[in-house]
Simulated scan of single mutants.
Amino acid sequence: MGLGNFFKKQLSQVIEWNNQNTGLLVYKFPSSNDEIKNSSKLIVAPGQGVILVYEGKVADHIVGNGTYDIESDNHPFITTLLKLRTNFESEHKLRIYFYRTADNVNLGWGTAQAIKYMDPIYKIPVELGANGSFSFKISNPLFLFEGIIGSKDHYSVEEAKQLLQNRFPQAISSTLAKSMVSYQEIDSQLPVLSTNIKESLNTEAQNLGLALTDFKVNGTIFDEGTKARIAKIADITTDTFAAKEGGLTYVELEKLKALRDAARNEGGLAGAGLQLGVGMELGKTFNDAKEEQLNAENTDVVAKLKQLKLLLTEGIITQEEFDNKKKEWLDKF
């Protein structure tokens, strides 16, 4: 060791986290052999906190901004000269860890796996992906340091983000189930869902020494299977509404559609009946249902015309049949 370096090691230091990297959550002050000299000055700037580990134990935790005197057993010259047998290295190690107290804001998140829950209204399984943004900060520095970070010299915001984000899918799924929100209402309920999910996540975050200060769900997207189930429900809902407008039930409309399809098959109703395994009675039943709807005496002309129009729209009767029946009913009216 040169004489210049020897004397340089004996000087007190000014210890601070200059040009703080916003990508770091925890930063260990670099020091040769971790021998911080007695009477060194520690500067804690706004948005920072400090943890001092002396001889392997947490000795102090500083949260207030300002300048502090460092007291250790590493006295200049005396310590170094007495440590010839340890190659001029002191056993009085002082490690200084700065950490970020300010919020880490506007971090994007997205689910890597599908979130699954049962729709409370339509009783169908729903799978969706979600994305948004969140902010967090350190809420319990000592717990995070001792329980999560350990002896690492650096701990990044990205590492903490991944630690938190792994908890998102379960919290979102649980919140959707508890809130009883149908897939139709998710987009309109995003602000409320975001608040509830944040509360759920903060229970988990506290166990990591962290806290979410903001959480937003910006959008959702359904998987293909869910889209197919939703489309089927939409078709049934549309058909049910159309049937109601025509004075029919959904079941009656489906029967008449089956009649239409059977009539189009080669061999007519009899052939269709055989294909479906119910024989000629199927055609007779549908014919009876059709005639009952078109000729019921206790149905007024306007209601009959609505039903007739519905049958035409669904392709159950032809335009000619519609025109003839319409003229017959109007003549009676």
Rank of each mutant, 00 (worst) to 15 (best):
1 M>L: 12
2 G>Q: 10
5 N>E: 12
5 N>Q: 11
22 T>P: 15
26 V>D: 00
26 V>E: 00
27 Y>K: 06
27 Y>R: 08
27 Y>G: 00
29 F>Y: 15
29 F>D: 00
30 P>S: 06
42 L>V: 08
53 V>P: 01
53 V>M: 01
56 G>Y: 04
57 K>E: 13
57 K>Y: 07
58 V>L: 11
61 H>A: 05
68 Y>C: 07
68 Y>K: 09
71 E>F: 07
71 E>V: 09
73 D>Y: 09
76 P>F: 01
77 F>N: 01
78 I>Y: 07
78 I>W: 12
79 T>H: 02
82 L>N: 13
82 L>M: 14
85 R>N: 14
85 R>P: 04
85 R>K: 14
90 S>V: 06
95 R>L: 07
95 R>A: 11
96 I>N: 05
102 A>H: 05
104 N>F: 05
106 N>Y: 07
107 L>Y: 03
113 Q>V: 14
113 Q>S: 11
116 K>L: 04
117 Y>P: 07
118 M>I: 08
121 I>L: 10
130 A>Y: 05
131 N>Q: 13
132 G>L: 01
137 K>P: 05
139 S>D: 14
142 L>Q: 10
152 K>T: 01
152 K>W: 00
155 Y>M: 03
159 E>D: 11
162 Q>D: 10
166 N>H: 10
169 P>G: 06
170 Q>D: 12
171 A>K: 13
173 S>C: 02
176 L>V: 09
182 S>T: 15
186 I>Y: 08
190 L>V: 10
192 V>T: 11
193 L>K: 10
195 T>Y: 09
196 N>W: 09
196 N>Y: 10
197 I>C: 03
198 K>Q: 15
201 L>I: 07
207 N>F: 02
207 N>Y: 01
224 E>A: 12
230 I>P: 09
233 I>R: 14
233 I>N: 09
238 T>N: 09
241 F>E: 12
254 E>Y: 00
254 E>Q: 15
254 E>K: 15
256 L>V: 07
257 K>G: 01
260 R>S: 11
269 L>K: 06
275 Q>G: 07
277 G>S: 05
280 M>R: 13
280 M>E: 10
282 L>C: 01
284 K>L: 11
284 K>R: 15
285 T>N: 13
289 A>D: 14
289 A>F: 00
290 K>Q: 11
291 E>N: 14
292 E>Q: 14
296 A>N: 15
296 A>Y: 02
297 E>D: 11
299 T>R: 14
304 K>P: 05
309 K>S: 12
312 L>V: 02
313 T>E: 06
315 G>F: 04
317 I>R: 08
318 T>K: 11
318 T>D: 04
322 F>R: 05
322 F>D: 03
324 N>Q: 15
326 K>P: 02
